[in-house]
Design a protein around this nucleic acid. Structure first.
Lengths: 257, 257
DNA sequence: AACTTATGTTCGCAATACGAACATTTTGGA
DNA sequence: TCCAAAATGTTCGTATTGCGAACATAAGTT
């Protein structure tokens, strides 16, 4: 079942319904039937059925002619994150690191060409990184992204970099695909990644992999800070050891799954 | 379109697929095909199609024979939440309670010795509580205030009560600082507060805490009503359950901060 | 290696989802 | 306020989609 499934093995109505859910999630003020139909490329009748089903299942609410996403999606995420998931168990570990070094500490997984934050603990600085659980960032120019990419084999990495949207966020952003591949190979060898103002000027972070029992890179953890606070060398000396320790503790938790 | 929709207006495959998504969200370690089929009350073939579709759409991943929810759902929540403040998103939750019980429903945070209203939904009564977002009321003699004070430690509570301006608004107002501290301790133990005509004759309200992930009391939600309409006992039996449910839903939103 | 369990695949078919057309409601402008 | 336009609701014939059963294959256990 690792192969690409045949189209006949998929349920088109479910795919369409999920598409409608995504459209609604990007419209916090709600949308009207016709707007949803257009956005989803469906007829009114088709979109109406899907919307009514989302309402009936509790994922959306109807206010007059507006369809608005309801908080059920949030509850579902909460169940997943909170229900003894690895990420709820990892959070105290991240909190300890964050309190130890005074910076924000996060965990993320790879989703397509992005990383998605699955756990985050804020640091105690006033000027601080404002990212949250659920935030997506491009993998190619983030420390956790680099670490997660280092867990792919060369063919997968080449394929992903080939298709990725790559742009220079700052003058320091590495955008050449071959140079990126070489940087990821460096990360693979070194066992950690430091990204220095490639996502945003002033933002520097260090990440390490979290591995499953089989050695696969399943997540990354990082510490993000301001480049004014830690040099790259200081990150290596001061931030890397507690980060490696946190990753090891999270890996211990993974051993039970 | 406000009527209950006919069954033929709903898409059964979407409903089933959402059911599978919910089953996966409650299984952080993942499930096998047969387990999902049983949990969803579907045949293997049916469950397999839905699972493959969730995988194809990015909501799940297949690791060997395990199907695991992916982080896409979380990033969808982030997109949705990104557009507004927590309290604007909490308003529909308060509205639902308000419509259910017919009374006004509010949320507030602690500022100094006052509570400050951050969200409010009016009830449908003609004689009704006329307070607004931004309104400040003294914490010591309001239900939300009592709940918020119950989140302080004893030293903080003593300090605040010592400095607070305390006066008898009605003959029922508790003004003795030690008696107030004891009442707050009661609230801490009980997990809710009822304030009975201490702010204003005829005004009775019940409040519960909203807690952050770390368990800190960060806000309170309440239902305010006329003492002619609900006895304290009825408040406990009729108003407390929906209020606790609303607090839990708002706490789900807080998980994303 | 043999057996059991679990999953993958195929195919006939019925039920489900579909869209078009008409009916009704809502909205906006004069 | 009235009317026309826009939006949504409803119905129904039908084609397509999703279905499950049966067989094939793979994985796990002893």
């Amino acid at each position: 079942m690792e192969r690409e499934p045949e189209q006949r093995d998929l349920v088109g109505s479910l795919a369409k319904g999920l598409g409608v859910l995504e459209i609604l999630s990007a419209a916090p003020g709600g949308l009207r039937l016709t707007e949803v139909a257009e956005a989803a490329g469906l007829t009114r009748a088709g979109a109406r059925r899907l919307l009514l089903t989302l309402v009936a299942e509790g994922y959306a609410q109807q206010k007059g002619r507006q369809f608005v996403l309801s908080a059920k999606l949030i509850s579902l995420c909460r169940v997943w994150l909170g229900g003894g998931s690895i990420w709820s168990l990892a959070e105290p570990i991240l909190r300890e690191v964050s309190q130890d070094v005074g910076e924000s500490c996060s965990a993320a997984v790879l989703e397509g060409e992005d990383v998605v934050y699955v756990a985050r603990v804020a640091g105690r600085r006033i000027v601080s990184v404002s990212l949250s659980v659920g935030t997506r960032l491009p993998a190619y120019c983030t420390s956790m992204g680099r670490v997660l990419l280092s867990g792919l084999d060369d063919a997968e990495l080449a394929r992903l970099l080939d298709k990725a949207s790559i742009r220079a966020n700052t003058p320091k952003t590495l955008t050449d695909r071959q140079a990126l591949a070489a940087r990821v190979a460096d990360v693979r060898r070194a066992g950690y990644a430091i990204v220095d103002e490639e996502l945003e000027l002033g933002l520097r972070s260090i990440a390490v992999p979290v591995r499953s029992r089989t050695g696969a890179v399943v997540a990354a953890v990082n510490i993000s800070t301001q480049s004014a606070r830690f040099s790259c060398e200081e990150m290596r000396e001061i931030l890397l050891p507690p980060l490696l320790e946190a990753a090891a503790k999270i890996e211990d938790l993974l051993a039970f799954q």
